[in-house]
């Protein structure tokens, strides 16, 4: 039965998935367990996306299914359970760049995998990243940029984090467009992810979540 929810979500079967959730809730099952299965289903969606089997619209659709499931399960969760997240991540598209489709995919996948994502949007100035890191106490920063020119903004953002004395308290990942190991070195980031799943893997590694 548990496997059913995982696979129906993985197969993007909205009606079936919602029915299973309702049945399991009325059977009095632990809501956290249901959410965990839903996350597993979305993880498979993410894997299928990474292998080109699924595409952007599929991912967006899976997000909509997840939203509906959350709405069903949420009333059953205690406040503490609801906010139990694996770690805080400040994320944004760097200054000068306004592309956010890639960034939205990563933040979605991170959210699904239990991270609390603070999304600063696009064309984000260096200082805004610094302020948000201070304010939230996030331990991970994600810098996104599609334009090759965004690499300079990434470098400047990381320098600003360093100047604010925060560099040692955060891990920085970069992604988007044609990022490589050379560019990671150039910007001074800790790591780069070539797709959304790579970003999730990094975040899990850094926070010690399995």
């Amino acid at each position: 039965m548990n496997k059913d929810l995982v696979s129906t979500i993985a197969d993007l079967n909205e009606q079936e998935a919602l029915k299973i959730v309702k049945d399991r809730l009325s059977a009095g099952e632990d809501p956290l367990k249901i959410m965990e299965d839903a996350r597993k289903g979305l993880e498979i969606v993410g894997e299928r996306f990474a292998s080109s089997e699924y595409f952007i619209p599929d991912l967006v659709y899976s997000g909509e299914i997840m939203k509906l499931i959350t709405e069903l399960v949420k009333p059953q969760l205690t406040r503490e359970e609801e906010t139990r997240k694996s770690g805080k991540i400040v994320f944004g598209t760097v200054r000068g760049d306004i592309h956010d489709i890639g960034k939205n995919i990563v933040t979605f996948m991170l959210d699904v995998n239990g991270f609390e994502v603070i999304d600063l949007g696009v064309d984000v100035p260096e200082q805004k990243f610094v302020d948000k890191i201070k304010e939230s106490g996030a331990s991970i920063v994600g810098l996104s940029g599609f334009l090759t020119l965004a690499f300079d903004s990434m470098k400047q953002t990381i320098r600003a984090i360093e100047d604010a004395g925060l560099r040692d308290s955060v891990k920085v990942m970069i992604g988007g467009g044609q990022i490589s190991e050379e560019i990671r070195k150039y910007t001074g980031a800790d790591a780069y992810g070539k797709d959304a799943m790579a970003g999730v893997t990094l975040a899990k590694k850094w926070t010690g979540v399995n």
Binding site: R95, D97, I98, L147, L149
Partner: peptide, 11 residues
Amino acid sequence: LRLPVKQLAFS
């Protein structure tokens, strides 16, 4: 024309 292009590529 060898005009500056940097401002063209940034928002």
